[in-house]
Design a protein around this nucleic acid. Structure first.
Lengths: 146, 146
DNA sequence: CTGCTAATTGCAAATCATTTGCATTTGTAT
DNA sequence: ATACAAATGCAAATGATTTGCAATTAGCAG
């Protein structure tokens, strides 16, 4: 049972977030929405090569999307930043190959990890480690911010 | 009930992993072992300033430790790499403030996340998101490697 | 304790992904 | 169609991390 990839309405998404609809941004969002796993910048550049897009422009677009909460930037190891569309079903869980760096998104949430972990490890052969981080605001900052 | 920090025997650890016992490495491991949370390179540099250690040396030591499995490199957001000692009780879970970037290690494992999540969010005020990644080896690579 | 050898370090230069300034182009509202 | 702000391309800047190489140091043998 493979996960069905829903193509998104990139233009609507851009309008919703008050971005101008440019070819690069549209194709960027569509590319992300059609990928079964988070994409590193290099792969995005390849996918967008028809547009002869400047790296700077791609970075600017990605950063703007992250800022707007449309896209999630994922960093599993030091050097590898990957981007993925933020979606309902997407709870930001991933599994990464420590050999070839392949990444898969995992379609379940923390709440059910326990039961799924076993299946998961069979699919992926072997899990060596995992990393979990919560992001929030600590009390000190909440105080400081008001 | 605060977590007790156990100072480690840095010299023994170095010997065990066939590293030479140099002042920098000893202090580096001790610093990491006494920190309640993962430390970014910048803070490590500050802590080691008595030794006037060259950044290159610190990076080399950290990379060697990570390679040896003594230290874990944690990257929560794009630019911030942090290092922490790998310890029995340390299951590589963290909570990060999205305002000041403070990081706390979380003393429980995935298996009990469900029950702990509530307490956790009270302590930390508010959790906006979380990120979980498993690292392992995919089938393709297992095949390729033999 | 002394000397030997390989590992470690400091320094300076190189690297590489990402960011930035600025002039030009493009999208959108009027 | 026009105007203005936003987006882009290009080249240069940035900044953390890495690397080459010569000098130093730790560990070991005698």
């Amino acid at each position: 049972m493979k996960k069905q990839l829903q193509p998104i309405d990139a233009e609507a998404l851009l309008v919703e977030h008050e971005f101008k609809k440019t070819p690069l941004r549209i194709m960027l969002l569509e590319t992300l929405s059609l990928s079964p796993s988070p994409l590193p910048v290099l792969k995005l550049q390849r996918k967008l090569k028809k547009l002869a897009a400047d790296p700077a422009t791609i970075y600017r677009a990605l950063n703007a999307f992250v800022e707007a909460g449309i896209v999630n930037a994922l960093t599993v190891d030091k050097t590898k930043v990957m981007y993925e569309l933020v979606q309902e079903k997407n709870h930001l869980h991933h599994i990464v190959c420590n050999s070839c760096s392949a990444v898969e998104s995992i379609p379940f949430c923390v709440k059910t990890i326990d039961q799924q972990a076993v299946k998961l490890s069979r699919q992926f052969n072997k899990i060596h480690s995992h990393q979990l981080a919560f992001v929030g605001t600590c009390r000190k900052c909440v105080r400081a911010l008001r």
